[in-house]
Design a protein around this nucleic acid. Sequence first.
DNA 1: ATGTTGATTGGCT
DNA 2: GCCAATCAACATT
Length: 187
Amino acid sequence: MAQALLGKRLVRLLDGQRLAGTIVETEAYCDAAEPDLACHGTRNRGRPTARTQIMFGPAGHAYIYFTYGMHWMTNIITGRDGQANGVLLRALEPVEGAAVMAQHRTDRPRREWTNGPGKLSQALAIDKTLNGAYLYRPDSVLWVEDATPIPPDVIRRGPRIGLGQTPEPWFSIPWRYWIEGNTFVSR
DNA sequence: ATGTTGATTGGCT
DNA sequence: GCCAATCAACATT
């Protein structure tokens, strides 16, 4: 799913206006086979907590969490109900709603509006009020749309970012996906 | 109850 | 490249 989401469009409806961007970088968390020690769902001995219960729920919901005292992270839950699987959205290429994104990202150049997980959440005004939201409700304010498919040969993969002292093999497993050459990829 | 850390960012050297 | 910001979640006592 992390790979399949590349090239699709994330749409945020805010005050009746569409803010949207092409998904150009993602990361996968957790695996049905064995626990992923970098995944929030494996904390608390693999049992759900107040924060992670959304991860354990059915696919198609948003998992939005707060970190470093200031940043919101946007994830899409995947996999079967009961499994803590999700995809972190790490970067978008802005497509619709430029003026509002620029406003949310105060005086920063376009290139820095959405080239990171905290940045894209801020640009699209995604915070805890969207945690648990089901993306495919008719009245949803956040969803994914199909867009022009990207050619498979531009997809690159590598280790996930910011895992700290997560042990191997999880530290190096190549579950980060991005579109080669896209200027909005975070690094 | 207390201590540590973090799926990051932005400013400074 | 280094590090402070800033606080909720989680682990430990």
